[in-house]
Design a protein around this nucleic acid. Sequence first.
DNA 1: CAATCATATCATTATTTAGTGATATAATAA
DNA 2: TTATTATATCACTAAATAATGATATGATTG
Lengths: 116, 116
Amino acid sequence: MLTVANPTALALQAKLFRGFADPSRLAILQALRNGARSVGDIVQATGLSQPNVSNHLGCLRDCGLVTASPQGRFVYYELSDRRVEQLLRLADELLADVAKGVYECTRYRAEDSSDA
Amino acid sequence: MLTVANPTALALQAKLFRGFADPSRLAILQALRNGARSVGDIVQATGLSQPNVSNHLGCLRDCGLVTASPQGRFVYYELSDRRVEQLLRLADELLADVAKGVYECTRYRAEDSSDA
DNA sequence: CAATCATATCATTATTTAGTGATATAATAA
DNA sequence: TTATTATATCACTAAATAATGATATGATTG
């Protein structure tokens, strides 16, 4: 059997991608593409509820996709690494070509989830 | 409210990333990094069950991440686009730096899922 | 110190999704 | 035609995860 890679590495990589694989987290990451934002700013920008944003930020922070900088009672978040933005951009470009297929894929919910 | 992007685009992008966000699908994508493989080859390489592989391939195919070429009773699959491989590589590199955080992130299961 | 503001935590619920086993389809071989 | 091989489909179950509401923590202001 042509074993492809060690399972732990696969599990880690899947976890990394899962950071990007949810519309709410993506909305948060998009909101950070232009620089640091406080939690309140992100709540405003995304329309998600505050606890929901905090939960997702916790996930993104634990996974190292964003970093937090407390300043007084605010906490500013930003993308942790240039490559996070690169991944987002590459996905944008890929999506431009495969969007139709993705859209028509019925295996996962196509829900709009436009609000919290 | 600084609306970040249209919700449909976010949902599509999330769906795209979900293709990468599962250890089994990643194992399949990894198996295709070196070129086309039949379903049987992929089953061998990943150790996943045949119906499971077919299900995931269906998902990846619908989403445009892989393409299928039937040849007799075999069906060969390959990565559909150079950028799929680029995304995998970028994730590899990012993971090299943030792996510790991802590993320690307890919000999602860290299960090894080494076999089917 | 009391009030307020910004963020985090947590248990619960509802929804999604992965995997399995049984079976269908389709191509080739005997 | 019958058997065999390769792949796909599908209903079902079990597990994982997102969102919510209530509440806690911690900083600042009066």
